[in-house]
Amino acid sequence: MILNIAGLNVKITPRYEVLASRISNEYIAPDSAKPDFSINIIPGYLEQKQKENPHLTLAECEYIWSGEAVFASMLDFGGFMLHSSAVALDGQAYLFSARSGTGKSTHTHLWLDCFGAERAKIINDDKPLLRLIDGKFYAFGSPWSGKTDENLNIKVPVKAIAFLERSQTNSIERIPSLAALPLVLNQTVRPLGEERMSCLLSLLDRLLSDIPVYRLKCDMSHEAVETSYNMMSERNESR
């Protein structure tokens, strides 16, 4: 089948139901669409992954590693995955990144509570794709969104990225570009091979010069949303 992922046509042939069931119709392109790239999982690869991760089934391995293959190929098209929960508000994307279990999804769902479904929606709850297209970074959903199916096949210009930490009080500060680099590298799939890594670093150089990155310390209250939104939307810029 041909999928439309982050504006690209991707040829993929699911072997198992888990992957097939997580691809919602909005991603399915006509069979006549010309693929930009294909995902071919070599025989034995999933079996190997399953042996390394015995808590997963083969079908779950297919879902996870087909996603990784798509993320890796995105680099050829100016794209990469940032492990984060991405929310669109008023047509702009805000990404909240952190290690699993920190509460990035909790935070973006607080945004939905505060702003309502008319204004805010989840682009991808765990693994949005970012692509540089005609000089601008956009966030995209994809069928790979972690534990939940909260993802949409939409393209939203990226406004800001925050690295989230849990705290008793709410505060947010800008992170200088250089300090943000290792944070981003730790929340994406590091490419293998010098050439691919070089390519990712060029892309991140551009990202860090264009997109502001913040450190958000927050609890689970609506005040946390006020803190992140006010700063990241630059609503108070000219106060």
Binding site: G193, S198, L201, D205, S209
Partner: peptide, 23 residues
């Protein structure tokens, strides 16, 4: 990989080298 990012010269490990260098 040695590269200029964000106006600085950085060295980033790939593959197994990642284990020896955090970030």
């Amino acid at each position: 990989v040695l590269r200029e990012v964000a106006g600085s010269i950085v060295v980033v490990p790939i593959g197994e080298a990642t284990l020896n260098l955090n970030g």
